[in-house]
Amino acid sequence: MLLTYTESNQREIRSALIRELGFVPPNVVIKGWYSFLLEDYLRPYWPRHFGGRIEGILLDSSNPHYRNGRTIPGRASELDGQLNPACFLTGSRRRAHSTFLSKLAREIDEQSGGLATERLGTMFSCVLIDEVQDLVGWDYEILARIVERTGIACYCVGDFRQTVYSTSPARKGPRSSEEKLARFLELGFQHEQIVDSWRSAQEICDVSDLVFQSSGRYPPTRSLTEYREPDHGNHCGVFAVADEDLADYVAAFRPTILRDSARADTSFAAGCEVVNIGEAKGRTFDRSLIVPTAKVRRFFGGDIATFDADETEKARNKLYVAVTRARFSVAVALGDGAGIPGVGRWTPGG
């Protein structure tokens, strides 16, 4: 079973299998993390006092039990020693809150005497979790159950620098990259650091390393690609493009436009694919053009430690994701040019 968080990455995994084997073998299951929890933990051993059948999941944007800064009463996770449906389910009881999904999964497994995990063990011999950096908190309880109570071989792949989503906004740990890594080691995982990139040219890898240089946590990335300039329009690397040159650049290279959110102005890029950075995760493009936020501008301007003071890793991670999507070239819309090594200015005449 291959598990991952986003739908686009499920598609990516599927096409990777098709590239390698020509088809998806019948004994391979590709699932999203939520579907996995729903189909293999919630439904099979659905608490009888919840009644009926759980139809699906409500994607919470924030903790559903807070309103106007206050906790709504009656939403405790247990009531009279039983799971409280008001905590885990929507009012109709037909859907489960995504926030507490893995907690509910864990409780259900607990109350059924571990039957859900046991069932999983009879179905699969191997579980691969991609983009594992997206799992937080209670998700690790599920992971722990799989590792500790089944014979399933478990492989997790991820890059904590790419944590731009998390499966739950609840406060349960682990939440930070260090905590997560520590939890993995605790669960008996072997840690293997991969510094290789199969996607991006070395020039791009070098610039991406700068994003985390000030944290001192990651070794330099080595590109395993063999792109040769003449095959790729003599345009490999990271480039700053001035506003007045954007139209020419877009016409010349047709990059995929990466933006922080729909609020960014992408009117110059008619005819190009425009993707929000959050959704670009796991995807690969030949060429990209980043529409920078103010902070990203500061970074490219030379202040590579600009993210150090941030409370969360989100903004830094997003930039890292944005830089590492392209195979050949990354352009950044920068009026004043770049102030960091490895980023030259592009002009129409070359």
């Binding site: 099979p44 051993y45 659905w46 059948r53 069932r119 009879t122 179905m123």
Partner: peptide, 14 residues
């Protein structure tokens, strides 16, 4: 058919 396993049946059997 292990994927069809659960206790959602009239006997409440796993």
């Amino acid at each position: 058919a292990p994927e069809l396993r659960g206790w959602n049946n009239s006997k409440g059997e796993d």
